[in-house]
Design a protein around this nucleic acid. Sequence first.
DNA 1: TCAAAAGTAGACAGGTCGGTCTACCTATAG
DNA 2: CTATAGGTAGACCGACCTGTCTACTTTTGA
Lengths: 186, 186
Amino acid sequence: MDKQEQLVRTAFKLFYTRGIHAVGINLVLAESGIAKKTLYHHFPSKEHLVEAAVRYRDRSYRAWFISRLDGVSPGRPALLELFNALDDWFHNRVSDIDHFHGCFFINASAEFGDRDSAIHRACAEHKAGITMLIRKHVALLYLSEKKADEITRLVVLLKEGAISLAHVQGNLDAALEAKGIVEGLL
Amino acid sequence: MDKQEQLVRTAFKLFYTRGIHAVGINLVLAESGIAKKTLYHHFPSKEHLVEAAVRYRDRSYRAWFISRLDGVSPGRPALLELFNALDDWFHNRVSDIDHFHGCFFINASAEFGDRDSAIHRACAEHKAGITMLIRKHVALLYLSEKKADEITRLVVLLKEGAISLAHVQGNLDAALEAKGIVEGLL
DNA sequence: TCAAAAGTAGACAGGTCGGTCTACCTATAG
DNA sequence: CTATAGGTAGACCGACCTGTCTACTTTTGA
């Protein structure tokens, strides 16, 4: 495997499980078995490595997310499947993405709170991308643009809420609770 | 003011605006004008100071939150007022609590991801406390215990979702969007 | 074939980290 | 009056931080 990719994957895993500021560059190097010079050949600074890790997670998470929604019929079933996917994630039943330690994008945004920072912006872009995927499925259900926006907001709010509850409170059933609400309303 | 309280307040402000691991003990001391010996007289380690900062935020946030809900009639109005309060918070219209940088408890949980850590547990306790306050108001609306639980979950999920969207995506209108949904359902 | 590119190990620099310690200075309660 | 608790400033410790650098080796593509 490409050294750059190897670095980013190792970095992501460590950042995700232990926190970004809590993980030093030397640990990433030791864990990946790659020389320091090589890291600084590919990335001008740790921040750039962090940003790369965020974008890597965006790609892999999004791929997993899409594959789950594509596994069922578009529209209502896909929107409900979304919460089944979250439930599997919370309970570590997904091999594609790492064991649940909250949402990496929320966590990274917590550590890089400045909304102008490249890292925070990359996190916001991820969330916007996922919202667009949801929006596509909602659009299949409603003729009115306004109504579709409203339902998208509902689903996204419940999804984010479920992730937060699952991580902070350890309420791993939050996804199914959210699903129940959506099921009743859709 | 008591030196211990002064330390905790300064620490909280710095931790909240810049992140916990990103703020060293020496900065807290410089900012508060307190000697290092005094800090270690009151707290055995930085972690204990962090935990104290979390508990301090719990007290002040909870006080603000209660005062908002108590400002209107109990039940439905209080539940809607909750989202007005969030909206004011997001838009920095609240002097009681600091400028919005996301939820400190979510942020701290991101940096201290281990659910067994005292800090993470303190964050979970805060969230549970707020949920109980909400639950009290929901109970006024429904006879059935089951229905009340369901509505509480809805409100809490939307609240957490709104906080996440406001911070990560910078969608400061998330609270009013959530309010709109609750208004329609209640 | 052989130059360029990409890799290796790891010493090193300058700085910050959490935490300890000495030496001294109030304030106050018995 | 004086013992004690709580405070001050800041030197110091060992560890770790990001990032640079030297010196050498491997891979690769024109």
